[in-house]
Design a protein around this nucleic acid. Structure first.
Lengths: 157, 157
DNA sequence: ACGCCTGTTGCATAATTATACGAAATATGT
DNA sequence: ACATATTTCGTATAATTATGCAACAGGCGT
Protein backbone atom coordinates (compact mmCIF):
# COMPACT_ATOMS: atom_id res chain seq x y z
CA UNK A 1 0.00 0.00 0.00
CA UNK A 2 1.29 3.35 -0.94
CA UNK A 3 0.40 5.23 2.20
CA UNK A 4 1.92 2.72 4.61
CA UNK A 5 5.06 2.62 2.55
CA UNK A 6 5.28 6.38 2.63
CA UNK A 7 4.87 6.31 6.37
CA UNK A 8 7.75 3.87 6.51
CA UNK A 9 9.82 6.31 4.48
CA UNK A 10 9.13 9.11 6.92
CA UNK A 11 10.13 6.88 9.77
CA UNK A 12 13.32 5.80 8.05
CA UNK A 13 14.56 9.25 7.21
CA UNK A 14 13.78 10.45 10.72
CA UNK A 15 16.02 7.86 12.35
CA UNK A 16 19.02 7.69 10.05
CA UNK A 17 20.47 9.68 7.19
CA UNK A 18 19.33 8.40 3.81
CA UNK A 19 21.75 9.38 1.09
CA UNK A 20 20.03 8.28 -2.08
CA UNK A 21 16.80 6.93 -3.43
CA UNK A 22 18.43 3.61 -4.23
CA UNK A 23 19.50 3.30 -0.60
CA UNK A 24 15.99 4.09 0.50
CA UNK A 25 14.61 1.47 -1.86
CA UNK A 26 16.90 -1.14 -0.33
CA UNK A 27 15.90 -0.17 3.19
CA UNK A 28 12.27 -0.50 2.23
CA UNK A 29 12.96 -3.87 0.71
CA UNK A 30 14.31 -5.04 4.06
CA UNK A 31 10.98 -4.05 5.53
CA UNK A 32 9.02 -6.01 2.99
CA UNK A 33 8.24 -3.29 0.51
CA UNK A 34 9.60 -4.23 -2.88
CA UNK A 35 9.92 -1.06 -4.84
CA UNK A 36 12.18 0.49 -7.42
CA UNK A 37 13.96 3.82 -7.34
CA UNK A 38 11.28 5.21 -9.64
CA UNK A 39 8.59 4.62 -7.08
CA UNK A 40 10.73 6.11 -4.35
CA UNK A 41 11.20 9.19 -6.49
CA UNK A 42 7.44 9.53 -6.77
CA UNK A 43 6.96 8.98 -3.07
CA UNK A 44 9.47 11.67 -2.29
CA UNK A 45 7.62 14.02 -4.55
CA UNK A 46 4.32 13.15 -2.86
CA UNK A 47 5.74 13.64 0.59
CA UNK A 48 7.46 16.85 -0.41
CA UNK A 49 10.76 15.68 1.03
CA UNK A 50 13.75 17.92 0.52
CA UNK A 51 17.24 16.84 -0.41
CA UNK A 52 19.84 18.69 1.56
CA UNK A 53 23.63 18.52 1.40
CA UNK A 54 25.43 17.24 4.48
CA UNK A 55 28.47 18.87 5.96
CA UNK A 56 30.58 15.79 6.17
CA UNK A 57 33.25 16.35 8.76
CA UNK A 58 36.09 14.92 6.69
CA UNK A 59 37.08 16.00 3.23
CA UNK A 60 35.39 15.69 -0.11
CA UNK A 61 32.78 13.20 -1.16
CA UNK A 62 29.75 15.19 -0.17
CA UNK A 63 26.64 13.31 0.69
CA UNK A 64 23.01 14.19 0.89
CA UNK A 65 20.03 13.18 2.78
CA UNK A 66 16.29 13.54 2.55
CA UNK A 67 14.39 15.47 5.18
CA UNK A 68 10.89 16.65 5.90
CA UNK A 69 10.79 20.33 5.13
CA UNK A 70 9.28 22.49 7.82
CA UNK A 71 11.65 21.13 10.37
CA UNK A 72 13.92 24.08 10.90
CA UNK A 73 17.14 23.84 8.94
CA UNK A 74 17.79 20.43 7.51
CA UNK A 75 17.36 18.37 10.61
CA UNK A 76 15.47 15.16 10.15
CA UNK A 77 13.64 15.49 13.44
CA UNK A 78 13.38 17.47 16.63
CA UNK A 79 15.62 14.93 18.33
CA UNK A 80 18.23 15.37 15.65
CA UNK A 81 18.26 19.12 16.14
CA UNK A 82 18.45 18.89 19.89
CA UNK A 83 21.28 16.39 19.81
CA UNK A 84 23.24 18.25 17.15
CA UNK A 85 22.98 21.43 19.14
CA UNK A 86 23.34 20.32 22.69
CA UNK A 87 25.29 17.10 22.98
CA UNK A 88 28.96 17.73 23.61
CA UNK A 89 30.11 14.21 24.25
CA UNK A 90 28.78 10.68 23.97
CA UNK A 91 30.19 7.63 25.75
CA UNK A 92 28.82 4.24 26.57
CA UNK A 93 29.32 1.16 28.68
CA UNK A 94 27.43 -2.11 28.90
CA UNK A 95 23.85 -0.97 28.43
CA UNK A 96 24.29 2.69 29.30
CA UNK A 97 25.12 5.72 27.22
CA UNK A 98 26.14 8.95 28.89
CA UNK A 99 25.64 12.21 27.04
CA UNK A 100 27.21 15.45 28.24
CA UNK A 101 25.46 18.72 27.55
CA UNK A 102 25.87 22.38 28.44
CA UNK A 103 24.71 23.12 32.00
CA UNK A 104 20.95 23.10 32.38
CA UNK A 105 20.01 21.42 29.14
CA UNK A 106 20.29 17.76 30.08
CA UNK A 107 16.63 17.39 30.92
CA UNK A 108 15.71 18.87 27.60
CA UNK A 109 17.84 16.34 25.74
CA UNK A 110 16.44 13.52 27.84
CA UNK A 111 12.88 14.48 27.08
CA UNK A 112 13.63 14.77 23.38
CA UNK A 113 14.98 11.22 23.45
CA UNK A 114 11.95 10.02 25.35
CA UNK A 115 9.70 11.66 22.83
CA UNK A 116 11.41 9.92 19.94
CA UNK A 117 10.62 6.60 21.64
CA UNK A 118 13.25 4.40 20.05
CA UNK A 119 12.43 0.80 20.77
CA UNK A 120 16.01 0.00 21.82
CA UNK A 121 15.87 2.56 24.61
CA UNK A 122 14.37 1.62 27.96
CA UNK A 123 14.46 5.12 29.36
CA UNK A 124 16.48 8.21 30.17
CA UNK A 125 17.56 10.19 33.21
CA UNK A 126 18.38 13.88 32.82
CA UNK A 127 20.41 15.73 35.40
CA UNK A 128 21.92 19.16 34.95
CA UNK A 129 24.57 18.57 32.32
CA UNK A 130 24.41 14.79 31.98
CA UNK A 131 21.92 12.44 30.40
CA UNK A 132 21.91 8.75 31.13
CA UNK A 133 20.33 6.58 28.44
CA UNK A 134 19.47 3.00 29.33
CA UNK A 135 19.60 0.57 26.44
CA UNK A 136 17.48 -2.53 26.51
CA UNK A 137 20.14 -4.89 25.23
CA UNK A 138 23.90 -4.32 25.63
CA UNK A 139 24.33 -5.72 22.13
CA UNK A 140 22.29 -2.85 20.75
CA UNK A 141 24.42 -0.19 22.41
CA UNK A 142 26.84 0.31 19.52
CA UNK A 143 23.96 0.84 17.11
CA UNK A 144 22.26 3.42 19.26
CA UNK A 145 25.51 5.15 20.08
CA UNK A 146 26.38 5.31 16.42
CA UNK A 147 23.05 6.90 15.66
CA UNK A 148 23.72 9.57 18.26
CA UNK A 149 27.17 10.15 16.82
CA UNK A 150 25.70 10.43 13.34
CA UNK A 151 23.25 13.06 14.47
CA UNK A 152 26.05 14.94 16.08
CA UNK A 153 28.42 14.85 13.13
CA UNK A 154 26.09 14.92 10.18
CA UNK A 155 24.85 18.35 10.93
CA UNK A 156 23.30 19.95 7.92
CA UNK A 157 25.16 22.96 6.63
CA UNK B 1 34.23 36.34 -6.73
CA UNK B 2 32.69 33.30 -5.20
CA UNK B 3 31.08 34.97 -2.23
CA UNK B 4 29.38 37.72 -4.18
CA UNK B 5 28.09 35.20 -6.67
CA UNK B 6 26.72 33.08 -3.86
CA UNK B 7 25.03 36.13 -2.43
CA UNK B 8 23.46 36.66 -5.85
CA UNK B 9 22.23 33.08 -5.76
CA UNK B 10 20.57 33.59 -2.41
CA UNK B 11 18.91 36.70 -3.71
CA UNK B 12 17.73 34.95 -6.86
CA UNK B 13 16.18 31.96 -5.16
CA UNK B 14 14.49 34.23 -2.66
CA UNK B 15 12.85 36.19 -5.47
CA UNK B 16 11.62 33.55 -7.87
CA UNK B 17 11.46 29.77 -7.95
CA UNK B 18 14.57 28.30 -9.52
CA UNK B 19 13.88 24.90 -11.03
CA UNK B 20 17.30 23.65 -12.00
CA UNK B 21 20.96 24.43 -11.72
CA UNK B 22 21.16 25.16 -15.43
CA UNK B 23 18.46 27.74 -15.06
CA UNK B 24 20.30 29.28 -12.16
CA UNK B 25 23.48 29.40 -14.21
CA UNK B 26 21.65 31.30 -16.95
CA UNK B 27 20.19 33.76 -14.48
CA UNK B 28 23.64 34.40 -13.09
CA UNK B 29 24.96 34.89 -16.58
CA UNK B 30 22.44 37.69 -17.08
CA UNK B 31 23.90 39.33 -14.01
CA UNK B 32 27.42 39.13 -15.31
CA UNK B 33 28.56 35.93 -13.62
CA UNK B 34 29.68 33.45 -16.22
CA UNK B 35 29.54 30.05 -14.60
CA UNK B 36 28.75 26.50 -15.51
CA UNK B 37 26.29 24.13 -13.92
CA UNK B 38 29.21 22.46 -12.16
CA UNK B 39 30.04 25.62 -10.27
CA UNK B 40 26.41 26.16 -9.39
CA UNK B 41 26.29 22.65 -8.00
CA UNK B 42 29.25 23.44 -5.77
CA UNK B 43 27.75 26.74 -4.68
CA UNK B 44 24.55 25.01 -3.72
CA UNK B 45 26.52 22.55 -1.66
CA UNK B 46 28.42 25.39 0.04
CA UNK B 47 25.26 27.28 0.83
CA UNK B 48 23.47 24.17 2.02
CA UNK B 49 20.51 24.85 -0.22
CA UNK B 50 17.80 22.22 -0.29
CA UNK B 51 15.95 21.01 -3.34
CA UNK B 52 12.27 20.67 -2.65
CA UNK B 53 9.50 19.49 -4.93
CA UNK B 54 6.83 22.04 -5.77
CA UNK B 55 3.27 20.99 -5.24
CA UNK B 56 2.12 22.21 -8.57
CA UNK B 57 -1.60 22.08 -8.04
CA UNK B 58 -2.41 21.44 -11.67
CA UNK B 59 -1.29 18.51 -13.74
CA UNK B 60 1.84 16.48 -13.93
CA UNK B 61 5.28 17.68 -14.84
CA UNK B 62 6.52 18.26 -11.36
CA UNK B 63 9.05 20.96 -10.79
CA UNK B 64 11.50 21.73 -8.06
CA UNK B 65 13.06 24.70 -6.50
CA UNK B 66 16.04 25.47 -4.33
CA UNK B 67 15.50 26.99 -0.93
CA UNK B 68 17.58 28.09 1.98
CA UNK B 69 16.70 25.63 4.70
CA UNK B 70 15.88 27.21 8.00
CA UNK B 71 15.81 30.77 6.81
CA UNK B 72 12.47 30.86 5.05
CA UNK B 73 10.55 29.64 8.08
CA UNK B 74 13.56 29.69 10.20
CA UNK B 75 15.78 31.29 12.64
CA UNK B 76 17.89 34.39 12.41
CA UNK B 77 20.01 33.48 15.41
CA UNK B 78 20.66 31.00 18.15
CA UNK B 79 18.46 33.00 20.47
CA UNK B 80 15.68 32.92 17.93
CA UNK B 81 15.93 29.17 17.66
CA UNK B 82 16.02 28.63 21.39
CA UNK B 83 13.05 30.87 22.05
CA UNK B 84 11.00 29.41 19.22
CA UNK B 85 11.63 25.94 20.53
CA UNK B 86 11.48 26.33 24.25
CA UNK B 87 9.37 29.28 25.31
CA UNK B 88 5.81 28.23 26.04
CA UNK B 89 4.51 31.48 27.46
CA UNK B 90 5.60 35.07 27.78
CA UNK B 91 4.15 37.65 30.20
CA UNK B 92 5.39 40.91 31.57
CA UNK B 93 4.85 43.51 34.25
CA UNK B 94 6.55 46.82 34.95
CA UNK B 95 10.14 46.02 34.06
CA UNK B 96 10.01 42.24 34.23
CA UNK B 97 9.20 39.61 31.66
CA UNK B 98 8.53 36.04 32.73
CA UNK B 99 9.07 33.24 30.26
CA UNK B 100 7.79 29.73 30.89
CA UNK B 101 9.66 26.78 29.42
CA UNK B 102 9.56 23.00 29.58
CA UNK B 103 11.03 21.67 32.83
CA UNK B 104 14.77 21.92 32.98
CA UNK B 105 15.39 24.23 30.08
CA UNK B 106 14.99 27.61 31.74
CA UNK B 107 18.70 28.00 32.37
CA UNK B 108 19.39 27.30 28.74
CA UNK B 109 16.98 30.00 27.63
CA UNK B 110 18.38 32.44 30.16
CA UNK B 111 21.93 31.91 28.98
CA UNK B 112 20.89 32.31 25.35
CA UNK B 113 19.31 35.66 26.22
CA UNK B 114 22.43 36.70 28.13
CA UNK B 115 24.54 35.74 25.17
CA UNK B 116 22.49 37.89 22.81
CA UNK B 117 23.20 40.85 25.12
CA UNK B 118 20.34 43.11 24.18
CA UNK B 119 21.01 46.58 25.56
CA UNK B 120 17.48 46.91 26.96
CA UNK B 121 18.00 43.86 29.16
CA UNK B 122 19.71 44.28 32.52
CA UNK B 123 19.96 40.58 33.21
CA UNK B 124 18.20 37.24 33.51
CA UNK B 125 17.51 34.63 36.15
CA UNK B 126 16.91 31.05 35.10
CA UNK B 127 15.20 28.57 37.36
CA UNK B 128 13.84 25.19 36.35
CA UNK B 129 10.96 26.08 34.08
CA UNK B 130 10.87 29.84 34.49
CA UNK B 131 13.07 32.63 33.25
CA UNK B 132 12.91 36.11 34.69
CA UNK B 133 14.12 38.87 32.39
CA UNK B 134 14.82 42.27 33.91
CA UNK B 135 14.32 45.20 31.55
CA UNK B 136 16.22 48.40 32.13
CA UNK B 137 13.35 50.77 31.47
CA UNK B 138 9.67 49.85 31.95
CA UNK B 139 8.90 51.85 28.82
CA UNK B 140 10.97 49.42 26.77
CA UNK B 141 9.14 46.36 28.04
CA UNK B 142 6.53 46.20 25.27
CA UNK B 143 9.22 46.35 22.62
CA UNK B 144 11.25 43.53 24.12
CA UNK B 145 8.17 41.46 24.81
CA UNK B 146 7.03 41.90 21.24
CA UNK B 147 10.40 40.71 20.00
CA UNK B 148 10.08 37.54 22.09
CA UNK B 149 6.56 36.98 20.81
CA UNK B 150 7.72 37.38 17.22
CA UNK B 151 10.43 34.80 17.68
CA UNK B 152 8.00 32.46 19.30
CA UNK B 153 5.43 32.60 16.53
CA UNK B 154 7.88 31.32 13.95
CA UNK B 155 8.39 27.92 15.48
CA UNK B 156 8.42 25.56 12.53
CA UNK B 157 7.74 22.43 14.51
C1' DA C 1 61.57 35.38 -9.41
C1' DC C 2 60.80 30.77 -7.91
C1' DG C 3 58.62 27.02 -5.84
C1' DC C 4 54.85 25.63 -3.00
C1' DC C 5 50.40 25.65 -1.23
C1' DT C 6 45.38 26.62 -1.28
C1' DG C 7 41.32 27.58 -3.54
C1' DT C 8 38.28 28.02 -7.70
C1' DT C 9 36.67 26.65 -12.12
C1' DG C 10 35.52 24.20 -16.57
C1' DC C 11 35.29 19.96 -18.98
C1' DA C 12 33.86 15.53 -19.40
C1' DT C 13 31.64 12.03 -17.34
C1' DA C 14 29.74 9.34 -13.53
C1' DA C 15 25.99 9.13 -10.47
C1' DT C 16 21.62 10.18 -9.33
C1' DT C 17 16.86 11.45 -10.06
C1' DA C 18 12.60 12.24 -12.86
C1' DT C 19 9.30 10.81 -16.30
C1' DA C 20 6.93 8.84 -20.71
C1' DC C 21 4.77 4.84 -21.53
C1' DG C 22 2.53 0.54 -21.14
C1' DA C 23 0.78 -2.98 -18.00
C1' DA C 24 -1.39 -4.41 -14.01
C1' DA C 25 -4.24 -3.31 -10.23
C1' DT C 26 -8.03 -0.84 -8.14
C1' DA C 27 -11.94 1.84 -8.12
C1' DT C 28 -16.53 3.54 -10.17
C1' DG C 29 -20.59 3.52 -12.61
C1' DT C 30 -24.28 0.93 -15.04
C1' DA D 1 -20.69 -8.88 -13.87
C1' DC D 2 -18.99 -5.84 -17.34
C1' DA D 3 -17.00 -1.92 -19.15
C1' DT D 4 -14.65 2.15 -18.22
C1' DA D 5 -11.86 5.39 -15.46
C1' DT D 6 -8.24 6.13 -12.15
C1' DT D 7 -4.25 4.92 -9.67
C1' DT D 8 0.02 2.64 -9.07
C1' DC D 9 4.15 0.82 -10.63
C1' DG D 10 8.23 -1.14 -13.35
C1' DT D 11 11.21 -0.54 -17.36
C1' DA D 12 13.88 2.11 -19.99
C1' DT D 13 15.50 6.38 -20.76
C1' DA D 14 15.83 11.38 -20.45
C1' DA D 15 17.07 15.02 -17.48
C1' DT D 16 19.53 16.67 -13.87
C1' DT D 17 23.21 16.89 -10.56
C1' DA D 18 27.83 15.69 -8.60
C1' DT D 19 32.74 15.02 -9.05
C1' DG D 20 37.72 13.51 -10.69
C1' DC D 21 40.98 15.82 -12.91
C1' DA D 22 43.77 19.23 -14.88
C1' DA D 23 44.38 24.05 -15.41
C1' DC D 24 44.79 28.40 -13.64
C1' DA D 25 45.03 32.21 -10.03
C1' DG D 26 46.43 34.36 -5.91
C1' DG D 27 49.12 34.29 -1.51
C1' DC D 28 53.41 33.53 1.02
C1' DG D 29 57.80 32.59 2.44
C1' DT D 30 62.68 32.18 0.56
Amino acid sequence: MKTTRQRAILSLIATRPVHSQEELAHMLEQQGYEVTQATVSRDIKDLGLAKVPLRNGNGNGTQFKYVEPGLGKGYASRLHRVIAELVRDCRGSVNQIVLRTPPGSAMLVASAIDEAAWPEILGTLGGDDTVLVIIEDPAKLPVVKQRFEDMRSEDPL
